[in-house]
Design a protein around this nucleic acid. Structure first.
Lengths: 228, 228, 228, 228
DNA sequence: GATGAATGAGGGTTCATTCAT
DNA sequence: GATGAATGAACCCTCATTCAT
């Protein structure tokens, strides 16, 4: 029981319990009852610190994301070869996603918003602006948009760093010019994530490292034996 | 109303309605009430043809997967260049995943099994065997394992074909030897899927084609400007 | 137990139980748990027939109001002296309000809307139009306005008949011209209601009759044309 | 923030906050959280000075009633015509009820006691004695009776003064003899209150005055000795 | 004494599943 | 066989009240 340790503040105990439950059950299947049971606390306490279930989840995501982002930024700022930089980024990504697989799966699913009949799409040309695109049903409320936007920004914050690294490499003449850099970034980013999600045998540092190396190499030089 | 056409058997009307609803709402948010309303049938009828909600979802997945697999197999059997084959496989994958984004997202989530405290992992060396790996809590019942296994196998059936294509190319000396071919396959496969999930701007055949070409090219020759 | 009689349909059993509970506890203090216990039914059943608690209450009000309105209308259409007509109207009002004291008290309280920071006010000059007047806090949602409007209309339907009777009398020269007839009507109407609410000793037909006579008499010889 | 002024004692700050909140939200919708936030005090403090929510409400009622009663008594003691006295009483009543509409509405509702399956009824003939009349369910506990009795007495204290005025006028031969004076008093008293509750257009002194005049006039020339 | 973190019973509401018709 | 009325466990959330600090 996580909650048994009375020295840890309630809000942290709740957060820890939430992490465990969301990690195991995903969002919809997770229940506050289970969380408070693990945190050994009352139901009202959760609502004191976190407004509601969604906010608890979001808080968890933010909390996880913060140190992760810092690591990624540190990588981006490193003074070293592009290839090294890329490899390190991938390493961090692989480690993190392995540890937080379920939660980030939920995050990505919610972020896509597709299950609600609408999406957030970057405005063409103006990539910082997001616009709501309704595909069916009722348009979302402002609050709903805000929620998805927050999720979107979490993921985007992680991707943006990769995009920067790639951009730098293109400008430095190390990479072929990439049209639609953003799409490329997404493809790599999501590709790695999904691989991690579905390869549970990567769970130690060594394999993570190995995986990062392979991915980097493949990204850089491709799989073909011949040259184009 | 889909169900109005009385000539169509009930089970098919239910299936069609289920597709519509699951595609829109995902699994948890989908309700039988909405499905039967669209199918214009009684609630008991659903339980007659499909044991329960989960089974209905699975049946839908199977039904969608079948023609998709056939297309992929046709691609694999084509007598043409590896590159063409790859490109065509990607095309089919992109189209299909675009059309069935929400359902397959659910499928992948459920398949990961982590949502229940345990996973299915391929036995090292013996890749056809799956074993249950409990990460916490109670071990799953046989029925639960069976459920996840079924999802796993659906996805695996799609990936296997890609793996075959790659394997052939390696053997033919067109591709560099790929250690852990399975992991590679997963990486590519999931990378594409995720890109599709999160790029709503791919929605017509033309862009799908373009995307497939780019992916193929990148996979084959990499992004580096120089040769290794 | 009201619900024991299996021959009565569930929705009527629920309605009967709701009447009992709302009559006893008012709106806020009434709980669905108690209602379903009395109705001997499941909680979901309530939501099948009535969308939610508020709707259940409103349905109850409508159901009570309908026969009451018919009686009042019958009185208004009677071919007799104005005084007789008025007395009969009062009689019906007194009986009804005695029987449904708590429910109508709730109705009037909710209708006033004052506890929500806004009111429905008749537009000056244009008495059929209602407009929202915010006195403090957030303006109400459309749904909230609609709810209060419905309550308002129930009460108004009862008052309108009295107003008609009075108007007829003024036109016939039996009553002094009454400026702001609507306010007058309200004053009389609410005065009677409140008297009933707080005079539990009026509970038989005889006293109701007596009370009606007294009220009529008092009203007439203040309002009668023939003096001052 | 009402509570910011540190010179005012806590209990008064709480009372002021309670007035604001109960006036806005009614009883059930009012929360202690909002009250203590406005009062800028701790939750425990409320329970120190006032035992519980109900008691806080009652204390508020008493506090409001006291100066009001004094005004009414002053009116009753005035040395002037009955008509003037009546008009002034009405004026005070109208002003007060307008200002305290929500709180007094709650008060009247709770006072009726019917919300709990029993009522307080004046013993016939012996009007000062109250007896409990159970209409259904369990009889109330002594404490519950006491609570309702307290509310009853607040309202009665206001009505009693009107009754005195009327009684004096009857004895002085200004008014017709009124059988069941108490019922009459209630009818007038509650009639005015309800009119105020449901006429939000009375909100300044001038209209209050006007209203009082009209009511007086109407009452008088129906009740005046000089006719029929 | 004053506080406010913590509580948990209880509220309205949803929905997969059952079973009598 | 097909139905859909009925169910009730389970959900998220609120808030009056307590009590350790």
């Amino acid at each position: 029981m996580l909650g048994t340790d009375r020295t840890i503040p309630k809000d942290e105990r709740i957060m820890a319990a939430a992490e465990r439950v969301f990690s195991h059950k995903g969002y919809s299947q997770a229940t506050l009852d289970e969380i408070i049971k693990i945190a050994d606390t009352g139901k009202g306490t959760v609502y004191k610190y976190y407004q509601n279930k969604e906010n608890l989840f979001y808080s968890l995501v933010l909390r996880k994301n913060k140190p992760f982002l810092e690591k990624l930024q540190a990588v981006a700022k490193m003074d070293c070869s592009f290839e090294r930089k890329l490899r390190d980024y991938f390493m961090e990504l692989v480690s993190f996603m392995h540890e937080n697989a379920v939660i980030w799966q939920v995050l990505l699913f919610e972020m896509s918003g597709s299950a609600s009949g609408w999406k957030l799409v970057r405005k063409k040309g103006c990539e910082n602006q997001l616009e709501v695109k309704v595909t069916w049903g009722e348009p979302p409320t402002k609050a709903e948009v805000e929620t998805v936007k927050r999720y979107y920004e979490v993921v985007h914050s992680e991707m943006a760093i990769l995009q920067n690294i790639l951009e730098g490499a293109v400008n430095a003449g190390v990479l072929k010019p990439l049209i639609d850099l953003h799409a490329w970034t997404g493809s790599i980013f999501f590709g790695i994530i999904m691989s991690v999600f579905h390869n549970s045998n990567i769970y130690d540092l060594e394999t993570a490292e190995e995986m990062a190396t392979v991915i980097t190499d493949r990204f850089m030089y491709g799989a073909s034996i011949s040259r184009k």
